[in-house]
Design a protein around this nucleic acid. Structure first.
Length: 457
RNA sequence: GGCUGGAUAGCAAAGUGGUAAUGCUGUGGACUGCAACUCCGCCAUCGUCAGUUCGAUUCUGACUCCAGCCUCCA
């Protein structure tokens, strides 16, 4: 089998991927905090890691992919209170919306979608273990992680405590031993969401949920942990140290850390705090999910992707071209394609190189159009590659023909009229019909096989 | 202040120690009644400077610029 390679943020290099268990790969990806509709930047990791999920599925018998839902958070509390709805109702609404958005972008449903609120006890247990082992302490109703307690703190993101303090905007609280200590459990007022615990009535603090969910569902050590680059610090650093410290010292928490680059808009990171975001919802109202997905795959996942109108235009052109090939080769039966010799798949096995995979798709398209070579193989490679990218799974006829506007019967009627005109060498008349159709959003083309039509986007 | 990445043709985007994939645009041609589709051809020396090397876009150093993290963020 061809080796899958992945860039590991922890070692800062591309490494051969070797799972702990050849028969069962485990992957965890940070999902959203459900307090509003997610913005398009959040869609990038979902699409990238969905692609990786498909890649792994093509190479291993079983893959468990977990993408969490953070449904307890101070922002959730605040927003629910402001909108005067119950927290449950509130988080359920946005959880469903998130799942719908993700599905509309062509993402497979993850194996597991665990919720933070279903793992409160597990989080408390982890806190207790950390306290018992001397990595965490209680202070004024809080449980805090002591960042000086383990020398590995800072390793993942390559930071040291002294440097960070120099220019840091760290909130110094008197219940902390060290300014960088982070909260694992915090006290809640009677009016705030909370759970009774040995540490008092309170709620989870720093993303212990990820550790809890991973330990419970995927194991003490997992193969892959993914998320946005902006989560590397502090989130993943803090999570990593917790995961490491609550198990045996020699055992790693995560073997491969993967981080996707940011999505920029007008050259600046799209983010909730800056307010320069577009929600996936809004984009889906104007564009097909497949187009949005394709646009996200046009650049390598570790680079920054600038979101522009031009990107969408170019993506649309590429998709149209691919669907044209599929439409024109409908009579070619896909043969057998060996994953290991498929250039599209090979590109993806090399650290999810989606741009190169798309380039390979273009190459195959040209060969198919030329009708040269082993067409059954080419078609099979094309379809197999597209499947792993999660694109081109629509029926090409309906891709071009579905939509609003003139009904099919009328279109065919016009085409017949034009045919008659052409037969009578009335080219002016024929052209006029073509123009009228175009004015109504219908484009027609004469091919050797006959007239074909499609709706213009 | 500390730490990360990045800079490739008009646009987008891979990649490599031996003069650079792919797509779009533009342009020349084939096909077509004309178009469209499709096919063939053309269009870059890889931010700047210096070093290593027989040879660097690819390695090293400096510089400039851009983005990100150090506060919730994918």
């Amino acid at each position: 089998m061809t080796q899958i390679k992945l860039y590991n943020s922890a070692t800062k290099q591309k490494e051969a991927f070797t799972p702990i268990d050849e028969n069962h790969v485990t992957m965890y990806v940070c999902g959203p905090t459900v307090y509003n509709f997610i913005h398009f930047g959040n869609a990038r990791p979902a699409v990238i890691f969905d692609c990786l999920f498909r890649i792994l599925n093509s190479a291993y018998p079983k893959v468990t992919y977990a993408r969490n839902i953070t449904d307890v958070d101070d922002k959730i509390n605040a927003a629910a209170l402001e909108q005067k709805v119950s927290i449950n109702e509130f988080t359920q609404k946005f959880t469903t919306a998130y799942q719908e958005d993700m599905a509309n972008l062509g993402n497979l449903t993850p194996t597991l979608e665990p919720k933070a609120t279903d793992h409160i006890q597990e989080m408390l247990d982890i806190n207790q273990v950390l306290i018992d082992k001397g990595y965490a302490y209680e202070s004024e109703g809080h449980v805090l992680f002591d960042v000086t307690s383990n020398e590995n703190y800072g390793k993942l993101s390559n930071r040291n405590l002294d440097d960070m303090q120099a220019g840091a905007r760290v909130e110094v609280a008197d219940y902390k031993k060290h300014p960088m200590d982070f909260v694992l459990w915090k006290p809640s007022d009677t009016g705030t969401t909370g759970w009774d615990s040995q540490f008092g009535f309170g709620r989870p603090g720093w993303h212990t949920e990820c550790v809890a969910m991973i330990n419970k569902h995927l194991g003490k050590t997992i193969d892959i942990h993914g998320g946005g680059r902006d989560l590397l610090f502090p989130h993943h650093e803090n999570e990593q140290i917790q995961g490491q410290c609550c198990q045996s010292e020699t055992q790693d928490y995560v073997n491969y850390w993967l981080h996707n680059g940011m999505l920029n808009i007008d050259g600046v990171k799209m983010s909730k705090s800056l307010g320069n975001f577009i929600t996936v919802r809004e984009l889906l109202e104007q564009h097909d999910g497949e187009l949005l997905r394709f646009a996200l795959l046009t650049s390598h996942y570790r680079t920054t992707l600038n979101w522009t109108k031009d990107l969408l235009t170019q993506s649309q052109q590429a998709l149209d071209k691919f669907y044209t090939v599929l439409r024109d080769t409908q009579d070619i039966k896909a043969g057998e394609s060996d994953i290991n010799t498929n250039p599209v798949v090979m590109a993806l096995y090399d650290d999810i190189n989606t741009p190169q995979a798309i380039a390979a798709l273009h190459q195959i398209s040209t060969d198919l159009n030329k009708k040269e070579g082993n067409l059954e193989l080419l078609k099979a490679q094309f379809i197999q590659g597209a499947q792993i990218l999660g694109i081109l799974n629509k029926d090409p006829e309906s891709y071009f023909k579905s939509g609003d506007g003139l009904d099919e019967a009328s279109i065919l009627d016009f085409i017949e009229q034009r045919k008659a005109a052409k037969k009578n060498k009335d080219f002016a008349g024929a052209d006029k019909i073509r123009e009228e159709l175009l004015a109504q959003g219908i484009e027609i083309k004469d091919t050797r096989e006959g007239v074909i039509w499609q709706r213009v986007r």
